[in-house]
Structure formats: structure tokens, C-alpha cells
Design a protein around this nucleic acid. Sequence first.
DNA 1: TAGTTTTGGGACAAAATTGTCTTAAATATA
DNA 2: TATATTTAAGACAATTTTGTCCCAAAACTA
Lengths: 145, 145
Amino acid sequence: MRVLSKATVYGLRALVYMASERERTGYVSIGEISERLNISFHFLTKTFQTLTQHGILESYRGPNGGVALTKPADQLFLTDIVHVLEGVDFFDKCLLGLPGCGTFAPCPVHDFWKAAKEAMKNEFDNTSLAELGEKVTDDRFRLVA
Amino acid sequence: MRVLSKATVYGLRALVYMASERERTGYVSIGEISERLNISFHFLTKTFQTLTQHGILESYRGPNGGVALTKPADQLFLTDIVHVLEGVDFFDKCLLGLPGCGTFAPCPVHDFWKAAKEAMKNEFDNTSLAELGEKVTDDRFRLVA
DNA sequence: TAGTTTTGGGACAAAATTGTCTTAAATATA
DNA sequence: TATATTTAAGACAATTTTGTCCCAAAACTA
Ligand code: SF4
Ligand code: SF4
């Protein structure tokens, strides 16, 4: 049950890492993040560019530059990130890939799929980066490929 | 929020179609299904081969041949199909793609992801092809690309 | 037996995703 | 100014997924 693309997965891991560094001020370099999380630097950079363009991150070039969250981590929710990286229709897709979700003419699986999507969206809506960052207590999250 | 591969989506649509043809006996040809559901014949054939090899379908060649469900549709559940087409670890995957899911040392998003997966699995466990087939009442399901 | 229908299986092509690399632009520091 | 650091942007390659095609095998019909 794979829900997120790799690009989103990497982006999320990186954002959670940033949120976990509560005490730090200023920018965090993408190089540091990619090294600590063992993520391809260039791949992550592209994802971060998207996040920057959409106002999740702000970036700064040059020595001591890097990226920073544009808002406090407790005001950034998973839904915000996913909407940028996967599209705003992320929670509107049909399980069977049919176009034009059916408030009218629902397809056979609609009943349970709609409920499942809503539950998922509810979780994403209410989970902030801060909440996730707080749970980064051991090294496992940082070290795994 | 895309959960299933195209191969699985097509396979499922086709199985639901078969289940919806309650009155029919004997084999249904893949050609008929692919035509009615507007699915690539060869692509669907490969998916059906997998299902046949894993005991979801039985097939028969030659005129009036085709495929048939090996069990009554009310005894085939979404989980059965998904386990074959997506792998038995379908409901065991991490949201962040980390290996070795953590009953121990859970990663930051574990709490809510575990609940979401269980809810989803519960739905799949309890939804049979018969149940879905019964809901195929209009033409929408059959005709859409 | 010959010809037709249908699944089986594999080669192959196209497209999407993932990953790598190079160069440019911005910024800091000496 | 020259050099080092860091993000921006896009070309390019590798891999996976998706889709197409061809031919063989099985079964029926005449
Ligand atoms: S009615 Fe619901 S389940 Fe059916 S196609 Fe639309 S979104 Fe998907
Ligand atoms: S503990 Fe849960 S969220 Fe963390 S890696 Fe394992 S399955 Fe994923």
C-alpha cells in the first residue's frame, strides 16, 4: 500500500528532520539533510525547489545558506505538503482510477473508498510537522536508507 | 492518493464486471471484458494470467473458453486479489518507505499510519467481489475509459 | 485433418518515475 | 576582486510501470 511517491517520501522525511531540529535558527543546508538522511542530494534539491516555489520553504544561497520553513512547524500540516508535491486532487482520486468522482453515479467501490479517503485526509489535515518532529528521538529515522 | 497500480485497477474492474454477471455460467472471454471495460486486451490478459496462476481465476482455452472465478464471488475478497497483484506485504508498508516496520523503534509517523493501514485492510478484508458486483447497476462503470 | 477461437508467454516499445550530473546564479568572505 | 559555498535549473541516464505485438499451445468445429 504505497500512497506517496519517492519524491514526496524524501521531501517529507527531510521536512520532519528540519522540524526535529527545534533549537536551531537560520537556514539548514540541503547538503546536510541529504547526508544525514541518506537521500540523493540532487533529487532532494528538486523536491525542495518545488516546496520553495509553493511557499512551504524559503531558500537562501551562499555560505550559511540553505532552506527554512516559512512557518512554525506546528502550522505546517501534512496536507499542505502533499497538496504541493502530489497535487491538490490527492484526496479526490478514485480507487479504480475512473475519472470524475461520483457524488453522482458512484462506482461500485465508492462507499468504502470515500470513507477511507476521508479518514486519511483527516489524519493528514491534523498532523503537523512539529508533531512529527517531536517524535524523532532516536537515530533510526536519520540513518536508514 | 493512488493506492493501486494500473494493473491491479484493471484487474479489479474486470473481476467486478465478472461478478456483476451473476446469471451467467461458464467462462467469460477476456476479449469481451476488455472490450466492454475498454481495457487493453493484452495488458489485462497478463494480469489475468497472474490471477490464474494464483488460484483466483481458472481459465480455459478455445472457443467458448475464457476465465471464471474459482470460487463464488461472495467468497473472494479484495484482500485476496490485492495480495496476489500487489504482494502479500501490501498492508505492511511504511508511509515513509523505511524498511523493517517498527513494532520497535517506530518512526515518527507510525502512530497514525498504522491506524490508517488497519482501517484500510479491514475494508479490503470484508469487501467481496459479490458485494461490489451487486452495485454495478448503471452503465457508467462499464463505459468509462 | 484443417481452420478458428481463445489463453499463455515472451519480446519489445512507450511513458512515467527516479536518479545523476553539469552549469549558472546568488551570496559570503577574504 | 577572487574564491568558496549554496540553491536553481535543466539535460541526461537508469529503472519501473504501462502498453503493444507476435507466436505458440490448447481446445473446439467442420
Ligand atoms: S464514485 Fe468514488 S469510488 Fe467510484 S469512481 Fe468515483 S471516486 Fe472512485
Ligand atoms: S514504524 Fe510505522 S511509520 Fe515507521 S517505518 Fe515502520 S511502518 Fe513506517
